[in-house]
Design a binder for these strands. Structure first.
Lengths: 122, 122
DNA sequence: TTCGGTAGGGATAAAAAGTTCCCTATACCG
DNA sequence: CGGTATAGGGAACTTTTTATCCCTACCGAA
């Protein structure tokens, strides 16, 4: 997406996982595709809070990382579809675990985040 | 740490998880503390690639999120120790899963990342 | 007294990630 | 013809995160 200038230390497993699943919309996009929402327009409708530009960029990057695979019918009507690769499918359990943990603790984290705002408020 | 101006959507479990474990050094720091490296100086020696300033800031933020707890002996020699809270301990299995997944796929990801560099090279 | 270790933070720069605005191009429908 | 929907990207911007530099303060040892 951008050119990295700082090393990433991909020897650390957690960093590898973060590279795939980190970021504000990555997991959402992967999850939506896994649920059968294969086309860019559908993804944009599914995640309206995310700027379409950002979704596009993530699709490019996930494709380059071979998490997803693109199938476009050359002709018209314009139609592009994205599918998870086998590698992409292997991420789903990880996303599930993260989502589960997050959902279990989100109330607590929300409280803590709110408390931080109070003490740091402008 | 900084004042957020963009919403975080903490209703999504994955985002909650990323808030705790995301970032370049968060998981490393939590993991090191869980392994008994409790003092800032020790953490800095354990993770020498991370600027000490960054470690300090993460310690502040993890403390505010109640992932870790600080115990400082008021007097001298200066001594501060950080311990995982119960909440912090609950993150360890998540980190373990992420690390395991990442280690299983890091060679593949490295290849893909390298391929991306080639096509994007300056 | 100077040096080393420890804990911590201010200021600022640089990089990465995300956002916004607006553009191309094609085909279909009215 | 104009409007809508599709897929995609350029350019510029803001926000967030990470990095760099340098400082305070304290104690003990040399």
């Amino acid at each position: 997406m951008y050119e990295k200038k700082i090393s990433e230390n991909l020897d650390c497993g957690v960093n590898v996982a973060n590279k795939i699943v980190g970021g504000k919309w990555r997991a959402c996009i992967i999850d939506a595709i896994s649920r059968g929402i294969r086309r860019p327009s559908g993804l944009q409708r599914e995640i309206p809070e995310a700027p379409s530009r950002v979704i596009q960029m993530h699709l490019r990057e996930l494709e380059a990382l071979q998490v997803i695979r693109k199938e476009a019918s050359g002709g018209f009507p314009l139609k592009a579809e994205y599918f998870l690769t086998a590698f992409g499918a292997s991420v789903l359990p990880l996303i599930a675990v993260m989502d589960q943990w997050g959902n279990q603790h989100k109330e607590f984290v929300k409280e803590m985040a709110a408390a931080m705002m109070e003490t740091t408020e402008s």
